[in-house]
Simulated assay, not measured.
Amino acid sequence: MAIRLIDRRQLRQTPWKNGAGLTLELAIAPATAGLDNFEWRISSAQVAGSGDFSCFAGIDRSLALLAGAGLRLQRTQVEPLLVTTQAPVVAFAGEQTIHAELLDGPITDLNIMTRRTDWTHRLQQLHLLGRQRLNSTADVLFIYCHSGGPLHCNLSSGEQYPLMPGQGLLLEDQANLPALELQASQYVSAYLAWLNRVTSWPQTQAPH
C-alpha cells in the first residue's frame, strides 16, 4: 500500500483544459498522465469569474466547495446545480455542457474525476469533533482537511498522520485498505473521497 501526504501549498499549478484558469493538481493516475488520458484525478481550482466548464468526455466528476459563497452550474435542458455552503458537493458527467455562474465573488473548489469505464468514486463532507472509525474497501481513499483541526488519521498499523487545513492523505494500491480512526480535539471540516476500480468488489463503505 502507498501512503502519501499532500500539501496544497507545495503543489504546482496547471492550466485548465480550456485555458480559462489554473488548477492545483493534488494527485493523478497514472502519475505521468495528462488531461486526456488519466484514470482518475484530484485537483483544486480557484474560480474568479463566470464561464464554461471544460469538456471531459467519459469522465464522472464531483465538485466540492472549499471557499466562497458558491456556484450555479447551468446545464442544457436540465435543472441547474447549486454548490453552496449548505450543499457543498455535487456530481455530474464531464461531457455535460455547463456554464458556471459565481453566486457572490470568487470560490475555491475540490474536484474529483474518474474515467467512467474504469473507475467510480464518491465524495462526501465530514464534520468531526471527537473520534470516528473509518472502514474502507476502496482502491483509493483520499482524506482532505478543509478547516479546523488538526485532523489525526491513525492507521491500525500504528502510523499516525496529523492533517492541517489544506493537507490531505492519499492511500492507494491496495484493495482492502486498513481500518483507520479519525480524531479531532477541535472541530474539523473534512472531505472524504472513495475511488474504486469498476471490477472491484465489494464496493466502498461509508464511515460509521
Rank of each mutant, 00 (worst) to 15 (best):
A27V: 01
L126P: 08
T120C: 08
A31K: 09
T32K: 10
T114D: 05
Q183W: 10
Q124R: 13
L163A: 01
G168L: 04
N176H: 15
S43D: 06
A69S: 14
D173W: 02
T114L: 05
P150H: 03
T114Q: 03
Q125Y: 00
Q186M: 04
R75V: 08
A100Y: 05
L155K: 05
P202G: 07
G51Y: 04
Y161C: 05
T199I: 12
G34N: 11
M113T: 00
G58D: 03
R4N: 08
N37W: 03
L182G: 04
Q125S: 12
L151N: 05
L170Y: 10
A29Y: 06
E95S: 13
Q183A: 14
Y161D: 03
V198A: 15
A64Q: 09
D109W: 07
N135H: 14
P207S: 06
T32I: 03
A87F: 08
S136L: 01
I59F: 06
E159L: 12
P165C: 10
F53H: 06
A190W: 04
Q203Y: 09
P30M: 03
S62D: 14
Q160Y: 00
F38I: 12
T85D: 14
F92A: 11
A93E: 13
L66P: 10
G105H: 01
W201K: 09
E101Q: 15
P150L: 11
A175I: 11
L129A: 13
R115D: 07
L35G: 01
I42N: 02
A87V: 09
S157E: 09
W119S: 04
A29E: 14
Y161I: 08
H208V: 15
A175G: 00
S44K: 04
Q205I: 15
A20P: 00
S147C: 10
R115S: 10
H121Y: 02
D36K: 10
H99A: 12
L73G: 02
A179D: 15
L11H: 06
F38R: 06
